[in-house]
Design a protein around this nucleic acid. Structure first.
Lengths: 113, 113
DNA sequence: CGGCATCCAATCGGATACTG
DNA sequence: CAGTATCCGATTGGATGCCG
């Protein structure tokens, strides 16, 4: 049985869990970075750059560092020449999959007439 | 049985449904407006204003008009003095509930140690 | 009450150039 | 390749004042 989840802002004095979630992933680029990592599993910096239409290296770098600091993604550097850096979701980051499934579900309803 | 949803960016040449969804609800204030309407059902302008810490009337007004134009919320004006305006989710807007349930679920996992 | 108009500050983010 | 540094334009959004 699926545990029902009632929407609310949290108990009085407590932070709203929906806001807490949005503090972690609540911007456009952050969503798209996580989307790509959920789909591909592991990606290099340049692959992320190519996969997201319109993002600049600077912005991608900033968002990746934020997500790493929040424990959503991991960063692994391979000491090679040329350098290689791979990004993956952490266990916590993979908990975000349900949100993206629902986003896709909703996005598909938009395409219906 | 729940239909499985595979994450992907959509078929080649097609828009990514996740991006389509984010185009509709992808900003901080937009999320919080919909959250409040999902919880409360119907809200007046001033109630939305009070429910969201930090938003200004101008910003709220702009976001509400965007959401109305996208068919997510409905706006009803009562010709009274003083005027009363109520906002509710449309049928399309209520389709967003699954996203918020998953956001809450994730937000609660953040609180766990 | 529920806005809109104006002004302005802060943040976001792209373009370009450079480096280990 | 994987960034960082600088510059600058665009966007967001708060403060204030006015109005039906």
């Amino acid at each position: 049985m699926i545990e029902p989840v009632a929407l609310n802002k949290g108990t009085p004095g407590e932070p709203c869990p929906i806001e807490a979630a949005l503090d972690v992933i609540g911007t456009k680029w952050t969503f798209l970075i996580i989307r790509d990592l959920l789909i591909e599993g592991t990606l290099r910096f340049s692959d992320l750059l190519k996969g997201m239409e319109g993002i600049s290296p600077k912005t991608l770098s900033l968002r990746l560092k934020e997500l790493e600091a929040k424990g959503i993604i991991g960063r692994k550097v391979y000491p090679e020449v040329p350098p290689r850096v791979e990004y993956t979701l952490t266990e916590r980051g993979r908990q975000l999959e349900g949100i993206f499934i629902e986003l896709k579900r909703f996005g598909l309803t938009l395409a219906e007439k």
